[in-house]
């Protein structure tokens, strides 16, 4: 099995937060690997450490110890400039609260990561249009986030995550701020990207609707991996 098969590898990752004199052991030795083109859900109760894992894999926060490889790159060894490059090109992020830039239209929100990547204007226009169509918002290119529904904003966020053809899309509770039907639409869209474009998706969630479409589920409890289930196991579980 070649090493290149894994887009994400994290090994014995610990994360401690210090609040005054209290030390919170948010992650206590997390290890797992994620294969290219996989759809993996990280599930667990609130406070179990899902967002902390999301931040760690995404290079959005430092960890206390352990190793994290994205596309074979040890992110602990990257300087600020290289980390920005990683976030720009290798990873697309999706958040519970969308986190779009409110001053800019849907299309501009998708173009800004390309601006940081140095993509020429014409190419940006074409590509952002194309991605907007892909997420089903071709007709809302000029709308600002404030003029879009929650589900539409999340579609824009997904489109933005795709802007620079990342190796992986990371999502943190992407459906938590959406109603049931809209949540299902977003899950469907993520699954479609995963199947049709081969985008690797890792989503932290406690939305059980994600279970049926995931290739694997990593269950987290109190900052540790509780168990990892393959889709086959899940179906067995569901039947028994």
């Amino acid at each position: 099995m070649s090493l290149e098969e894994f887009v994400v590898e994290i090994d014995d990752v610990h994360k401690e937060y210090t609040l005054g004199k209290v030390i919170i052991h948010a992650l206590q030795g997390i290890s797992f690997k994620i294969k290219r083109e996989e759809y993996v859900s990280i599930m667990g109760p609130s406070g179990s450490g899902k967002s902390t894992i999301f931040n760690a894999i995404g290079g959005l926060d430092t960890v206390t110890s352990g190793e994290i490889y994205i596309d074979q790159v040890d992110i602990a060894e990257l300087d600020a400039y290289e980390l920005a490059w990683l976030r720009n090109r290798k990873i697309g992020y999706i958040f519970q609260t969308f986190n779009l830039l409110l001053a800019f239209s849907a299309q501009e929100n998708i173009e800004i990561p390309m601006v940081f990547a140095g993509v020429p204007r014409e190419e940006r226009r074409k590509k952002s249009k194309h991605i907007l169509n892909l997420v089903g918002l071709g007709d809302r290119a000029r709308n600002k986030p404030g003029q879009l529904s929650g589900g539409q904003q999340q579609r824009v966020a997904i489109a933005r995550a795709l802007a620079n053809d990342p190796a992986i899309i990371l999502a943190d509770e992407p459906t938590a701020n959406l109603d049931l039907a809209t949540g299902l639409e977003i899950i469907g869209l993520l699954k479609k990207l995963n199947e049709e474009q081969g985008t690797t998706i890792v989503s932290a969630t406690h939305d059980l609707k994600m279970i049926s479409i995931s290739d694997r589920i990593i269950w987290i409890r109190d900052g540790r991996v509780d168990r990892i289930e393959d889709r086959a196991d899940i179906q067995v579980d569901a039947m028994s």
Partner: peptide, 13 residues
């Protein structure tokens, strides 16, 4: 927060 968003999408400091 907005600065955080810029950083997530690849903005350099």
């Amino acid at each position: 927060k907005e600065i955080g968003v810029y950083k997530c999408i690849g903005g350099l400091d």
